[in-house]
Amino acid sequence: MGIVLDNLSKIENLPGGGIALAASDSLINWARASSVWPLTFGLACCAIEMMAAYASRFDFERMGVFPRPTPRQADVMFVAGTVVKKMADPIIRIYKQMPEPKFVIAMGGCANCGGPFYDSYSVVKGVDKIIPVDVYLPGCPPRPEALMYAVIKLQEKMSKMTVKGGFGATPLQAAGSRKLV
């Protein structure tokens, strides 16, 4: 309850129990940030570090991060690995299948900017050329702790969202994904 209490504007104590009134923004954002469900979207080497983040030592699930295999049930997409031109269309399709509000974490050098393959004829130089990205995570591959830090940054971004005015998302997200390629 400590998180909610910090954001409260008013506390009213009634006999027989306590009621807390919080701005609906903080409540919704707290719920969103505490259960970030990513799509298992490992493309290349970063996928192995992503799997290690879910496994016994780093245990992502204690942060509420529970991997979902289908985009229809996912909040965030970790683009973990190199985006190749042949894969670009499936990525856009999957991004469109995710329900709003959705986020993208570009994990690793290849997803950020092409990485070590920046001059290849078949690599898209960064996934932000095809879908909007919220958090960029550098590394080749980034450690699982780094991925957790990226999720924490995403949670901080989520905590700034507001119910009115387009969810605090990027302009492209606010317009919806109909404008994509």
Binding site: K85, K86, A88, Y121, S122, V124, K125, K129
Partner: peptide, 21 residues
């Protein structure tokens, strides 16, 4: 390579034609 690939990449005189990506 995808079907949209033009040319044969490993040839020494391959010239990359920029596409939409």
């Amino acid at each position: 390579t995808p079907e949209t690939q033009q040319g044969y990449p490993l040839r020494k005189d391959y010239e990359h034609i920029p596409d939409k990506f």
